[in-house]
Design a protein around this nucleic acid. Structure first.
Lengths: 195, 195
DNA sequence: GTCTATACGTCGATAGAC
DNA sequence: GTCTATCGACGTATAGAC
């Protein structure tokens, strides 16, 4: 404890550590990011990092906390909608906003093997995924929609790590990604294909 | 060299090593897979693994070789098509077949940070990606199609690691994924949306 | 082809000075 | 809050017996 208030200080040093760790996790993977590498990037020693966090797992979880909290919140918000169309629209816009608003967190949470192993032990991530699937497909098991949902989420992680897309203005990224989500998940059958 | 023929023997031991390494790479990431872990999985010692390969990088590249060769080949095949529609169709079916036919290789090549770092040094992967983009979007820079392409490829990697989808028959996986690709990339504007 | 043994660096994590 | 110094475990990679 640095301050006498009893509150978590959340100083500038901690914020910089937070930002640096997240950036390296997204670029090199958690397994590929040593605490030494994080410390070097900031310009301090490894022990200085350990002043803020007791373990590497604690860093990972703290850095990903906002994203990990946002995902169930989004699901709950979608479940409150009455029609399937509205639920899917909330899911699409919600995921796109999460991905665009925080590329690094989204990528790390979704595809990093270290994080997947960590969460498999700690939280019922599987149940959360089942909720999403039921939201989008409805009670009857629509396989095509389920596959499209998988592709949409996975595709968002891929676009989140693309350098070319990252240069685009966030609002513009958002529009293009929303269109992709609607093509995949709000599909209406066309009269008939031309080919 | 074990055999006197001068040819690479390609024995059963090497094949098992190949399969085991690929499976662990896909599950735990390359950084998260030690040579000790591979050796333990097979039931031999670490040194036995080093009999077949001099370095870890060599294992990674050898294991991913079929996929790394298939990607430019697919691109060349697509470029031979006359219409944009046909080129995109070759890209869609080609990528789906690659992903369905070899889930693990596809995932590792596409998203593993270790592999991305390795390839960044050795091969002009960037040029290959530019060829794909031009194939799909055509000469004029169509941003929406480009984003859809990113989402399609990324989505394939995500569906490749999904356990539920993996239980499905390959032909069935193929059909659902093809439909997703067509929704994203062979999009025709609908008369107008209902809502 | 596979083994044991080992070299040498880096890992996550801790102790104690300042 | 940050440092140096250090720990034990594990990483890649090698040497040499069988």
């Amino acid at each position: 404890m640095a301050a006498g208030t009893g509150q978590r200080p959340r100083g500038a040093g901690r914020a910089q550590l937070h930002e640096t760790a997240l950036r390296l996790f997204a670029r090199d993977g958690v397994d590929g990011t040593s605490l030494q590498a994080i410390a070097d990037e900031i310009g301090v020693s490894k022990a200085a990092v350990y002043y803020h966090y007791k373990t590497k797992d604690e860093i990972v979880l703290d850095v990903l906390r906002p994203m990990l909290d946002a995902l169930p919140e989004l699901t709950t918000r979608a479940e409150a909608q009455r029609t399937r169309h509205a639920r899917v629209e909330v899911i699409i816009t919600g995921f796109v906003d999460l991905a665009v608003g925080n590329h690094s967190s989204f990528v790390v949470v979704m595809i990093d093997p270290y994080v997947l192993r960590l969460l498999a032990k700690q939280q019922p991530l599987q149940q959360w995924w089942d909720r999403i699937v039921e939201l989008v497909t409805g009670p009857e098991p629509d396989t095509q929609t389920r596959v499209a949902m998988l592709m949409f989420i996975g595709g968002l992680t891929s676009t989140s790590r693309d350098a070319w897309l990252a240069e685009m203005a966030p609002d513009e990224q958002r529009d293009y990604l929303l269109e992709c989500g609607r093509r995949l998940l709000q599909h209406r059958r066309r009269p008939h294909a031309k080919d």
